[in-house]
Design a binder for these strands. Structure first.
Lengths: 354, 354
DNA sequence: CGCATCCCTGACAACGTTGTCCAGTCCGTG
DNA sequence: CACGGACTGGACAACGTTGTCAGGGATGCG
């Protein structure tokens, strides 16, 4: 009876493998069933040479029959390389993060690696917890978008032990490592210059919290552009802090209220831009707006929204490439890649009163 | 000399551990340095009782000095549970997916699990590849947004072996498993009914490719609402297919061109909504639009965009909860959770010619 | 027909951790 | 002072895989 019908389990000599729920067949089980040695199964599974077609087929049959799948945990333990990469973001639900994430995933896929992801929510402790958890899983490398105020010395032992680390969007603190940044200052300068070209002289800047590298760089670019044009900056125009609707509203009110009210506005990130657009809606007076970071629907607003566009996918791609180049043995000092921004001018009709 | 100063490496009897690059200290190294047994180190690392404060401190010192971090690969191999979950999405860069992903991450975090993520790009083969790769890593469970046309029988051996699987947004094919869906038909019916209440009688439906469960359900809801109101549906009004700008544009043109041109439109997903809004801009005649799935900026359009809002975070949360309940031992038949949609009416002024 | 050679196969150890179990120590009590 | 108990510490095996190495069978050549 070669096709053994449903027999009472456990009554025949050649016992069926213990198919109890939760048990996974191992190479040992496969070997027993195929009547070969464990190592031979390993050879077949990994496509190594040195197995006759006949034997290989027997093994394959056993694998299929048992539903065997190699346990990569054991493989990892033995081989040292895990073929996985950890990605620590601010918040995966954010369009910037998710685009970056997708790009990293793409490159990882090309290199046969899987991706762990986690969101830090801008909390340094959470960032560290995530990064170290990934390290404990022995990821080959890490891509980290640093949380504000994080100190990356905690990664030194890991990096020393051979885990590659690349930082994106913001530079690391207390650690030398490959880094990919947006040209924040240059972008903000370009955005501000655009407003100046449009005839504005009183321009406000509404950015994210100080301590966040990108926020400070963008502020710097704004100040540089103003200085270049010989324009003074009234303190009431500049506001840095959380970019929730309330604070943005208050800051906007302040910038527009004083004796020298701003006629134009540069917002320092997506959330601020959205909040500002909503507020400006309610206003009677036209206020020109340039936002840092593109919005998918910026062209649908009326008037269209001019933005300083970053390239989150480009950042992710660049970071992942740096990472894998390290994993492939690249040595040498830490590298810094800076990606340019692109000024996307839309809705040219919103020129304000001169 | 208890605090051994910087000696020439490798010259003293008690040799410093081989700190060559890429070598990680193990519990064995820590034990040797602390002068205790390996198991004692394990106890300290895991906070198990049975170690005097004095010994524990010596071990801790050795851990810090060597920069030891437990190798979770080995731990996983030994313990069987990996404290990790795999998430297969359509495209993490998509707002729907990333919101869902964030919610799953949140629940996983509460349960002390890490998250593998991967994008299938609506390709069943890629979905399978990802899911099985996660299984080979012995994730405890999987959350899968099925790709169109996927057959999930490939997961049967894994599920049988004890890996929990939960499906989100679309039901599995060929496999019984916990599933979380949006009330797609009901939502589309509500959206359509809204347009009917507004006085429209010729309403078009522009959905995603047939074969995608959500697309078909939404089409069904649309047809139900029309039938309920006793309204005929002209074939030229209904179009299913990829939701890129070109096809959407063509479909829209067809719906508006015939002898019975539509005066209103229900779009079946985000991308279609965006494409439709862009096209309608260029038109002279007003066409009412209700979109399936909310857009963050829907209120900023003029007129505001009425949508049938889903709850991607809710889907993710529900799916993750089902998953972890299984991991905690919940048995019993597959469960189906259906989350309601919410009709968000905006811009009431777009009533068309009666 | 004998010997060398090559190819296939299998036994064994090791990866780093945790569970089991036993030996030793220290204390209090009778 | 002897004994029991509690508690600390350590030796050993096991998780499932892969690398090393050696044995055995078939084949080719002299």
């Amino acid at each position: 009876m070669p096709s053994q019908p449903q027999a009472t389990p456990g009554t025949d000599g050649r016992a069926a493998p213990p198919r109890r729920y939760g048990h996974r067949p191992t190479m040992k089980d496969v070997a027993a069933r195929a009547g070969v040695a464990l190592k031979t199964v390993s050879r077949v599974v990994n496509g190594e040479p040195g197995v006759t077609a006949d034997t290989a087929e027997r093994v394959q049959d056993a694998i299929t029959a048992l539903g065997f799948r190699r346990n990569d945990s054991a493989r990892i333990l033995r081989k040292g390389r895990t073929a996985s990469v950890g990605l620590v973001l601010e918040d995966i639900a954010d369009p910037f993060s998710s685009a970056l994430s997708r790009a990293v995933e793409e490159v990882a896929r090309l290199h046969g690696s899987l991706l762990f992801t986690g969101s830090s929510d801008e909390d340094p402790a959470r960032e560290e917890e995530l990064a170290l958890a990934f390290c404990a899983r022995r990821v080959d490398g890490l891509v980290v978008v640093p949380a504000a105020g994080a100190d990356h010395r905690y990664l030194a032992p890991e990096v020393h032990a051979g885990i590659a680390a690349v930082f994106v969007d913001r530079p690391p603190a207390g650690l030398e490592a490959d880094t990919v940044l947006t040209a924040n200052a240059a972008g903000a300068r370009a955005g501000t210059a655009h407003l100046i070209r449009q005839g504005h002289r009183r321009i406000a800047f509404l950015g994210d919290s100080p301590g966040i590298h990108t926020a400070e760089e963008r502020l710097r670019g704004y100040r540089e552009a103003m200085a270049e044009a010989g324009l003074p900056v009234d303190p009431s125009w500049v506001s840095m802090g959380p970019t929730g609707p309330d604070r943005v509203g208050a800051a906007l009110a302040a910038a527009l209220a004083g004796p020298a009210p701003a006629t134009a506005l540069l917002t320092g990130n997506n959330r601020a831009t959205l909040a500002a657009v909503r507020r400006l809606r309610a206003l009677d007076r036209p206020v020109a707006l340039v936002g840092f970071d593109d919005l998918e629907f910026a062209d649908l607003l009326s008037p269209g929204l001019t933005v300083v566009a970053q390239d989150p996918a480009g950042l992710g791609r660049a970071a992942a490439r740096l990472l894998f180049s390290r994993l492939e043995g690249e040595t040498g000092p830490a590298r810094l890649v800076e990606l340019p921004t692109r000024l996307v001018v839309r809705g040219s009709g919103e020129v304000p009163p001169a």
